[in-house]
Amino acid sequence: MEKILFYFFAGILLFAATMVITVRNPVRAALFLVLAFFTSAAIWLMLEAEFLAISLVLVYVGAVLVLFLFVVMMLDIDTSALKEGFTRYLPLGLLVAVLIVLELIAVLGAANFGLDQVPVPEGSDESNTKTLGRLLYTVYVYPFEIASVILTVAIVAAITLTLRPNKRKTQDPAEQVKVRSKDRVRLVKMASEKRQDGKGKP
């Protein structure tokens, strides 16, 4: 039963991953990437890594890819220009692909990474989340803190790169609240006009 499910999800994952790089339309490619993330979350769930699986969906599918889609939808990509360099870069691309496949086989081949070497972990009584949290804040506390500092630096850097203080057209809410009607509207008292023919009341 577990094997059937695994091959089912693995099949979908491979299909989705292939579609991501072959499909022409960038929006569809992004949507296939969503499918790929979702199926890999399902595979993680089968390994009883529920916290990781759900956070994969939460972070990547729920936030990162939404923003990705946001950007991709705004782009106006000429797909014919993308196809031009295909034959020229093919030999180099193939070489890199073959190298990566060889490396993956060397590390992740059935000899080192099969079910016999790395058995499916027994389901423990303690919740996955608790164990992860405890490990992160005790054994791996320094790498964890350093990673978060690096991420914060990256955020600050990204914001400073795009921030152009002189060209911004933002409104200051405090200024908006402080505005009174007499700052904007001036009531002028004028004498009423006379009728042109000079008869009757104005």
Binding site: E50, S55, V57, L58, G62, A63, V66, L69, S127, T129
Partner: peptide, 20 residues
Amino acid sequence: INAGLLYVLAITSMGVYGIV
């Protein structure tokens, strides 16, 4: 499930795809 709250947050965050 143990990670119920996280599950709710993850699943509801998928809803935006329908709209987009």
